[in-house]
Design a protein around this nucleic acid. Sequence first.
DNA 1: CTTGGAAAGTCAATAAAGCTGACGTATTGT
DNA 2: ACAATACGTCAGCTTTATTGACTTTCCAAG
Lengths: 168, 168
Amino acid sequence: MGDGPPPQMGQSLLFLTDEQLRKGIEAMFFAYRGFTADPDRILAEKSYGRAHHRAIHFIHRSPGTTVNNLLSILGVTKQSLNRVLRTLIEDGLVESTVGTRDKRERHLQLTAEGAGLERALSDAQRDRMRAAYRAAGPAAVAGFRQVLEAMMDDETRHHYEAMKEKVE
Amino acid sequence: MGDGPPPQMGQSLLFLTDEQLRKGIEAMFFAYRGFTADPDRILAEKSYGRAHHRAIHFIHRSPGTTVNNLLSILGVTKQSLNRVLRTLIEDGLVESTVGTRDKRERHLQLTAEGAGLERALSDAQRDRMRAAYRAAGPAAVAGFRQVLEAMMDDETRHHYEAMKEKVE
DNA sequence: CTTGGAAAGTCAATAAAGCTGACGTATTGT
DNA sequence: ACAATACGTCAGCTTTATTGACTTTCCAAG
């Protein structure tokens, strides 16, 4: 592409050519499609969308989280989240309970049925992730995570880091 | 989370726990947001969306590609692509020329102005990708690509592989 | 040379998912 | 008492996608 690197440039610098970067960009684009394909199929059957999936995922991850918290993690407006949340509550997948310490807050958690859907969704996604991990091996997985973390916005990384230490 | 792995399990198998997989899933979600953030800002100024970006990217990558080809790469319907393509042609960013061998086909290419926008968009995205690559190092980048490729759908990987050998 | 089908473009209707702005209610904390 | 917070909701809008139906142009096989 355009001006290639001078021939004497070593492998350690060569990996940052525009071509390498373009391939990384396309890999990201195509892989993300694979990443969402399986859950999307399940969601389509129940006529939910990705927005529902995201809400379910993060409620599962942090049971009892508040609406505001979810809002900042998902980076959407209150109105957008509310439309999704309302259908999930109506359908009996999510439960909203008034806060004890602060009664203005609503604590969100999955019902048994909601947890069931979460399982189905994350099983599908985990299967693909597991297969990719197995195919690539532990060293590749470490690199994968390193690059992804470096790619996040500072603010976004904050949400990610917050959960990293929860279990490990 | 739930049932952890037995304590005697070694590091080489331990990396496939549900927790590790969940972190991979979230890393993917958050990183993709970072990945699209910079181009999205530029596109918003010109009131274009991601669909325009994708069309511009792949027309740049494969100048002279046909509408049908683009359709299969992007995985959208003809109508969706056509709306995007029409505005890009009207705005003078993309040129559509009747095929010489088969006059039913239209060959798409970027105009000088279109190439300019492509530059701006991919520069922004490359900058972030470059920074992430630098931070993580060549070994991590190799792993990153390996996992992403393993995560693609078979059909999708086909489109990706088709371009891999074009330059290198 | 006719005809079937492919490539492209278009019209209309619909839906998911986001946005802004404005308001109301309950509750908390100063 | 009063300002601020957390939540919910109403209305209206935009983007991006969908499906279905249809036309024009054109290639190629019978």
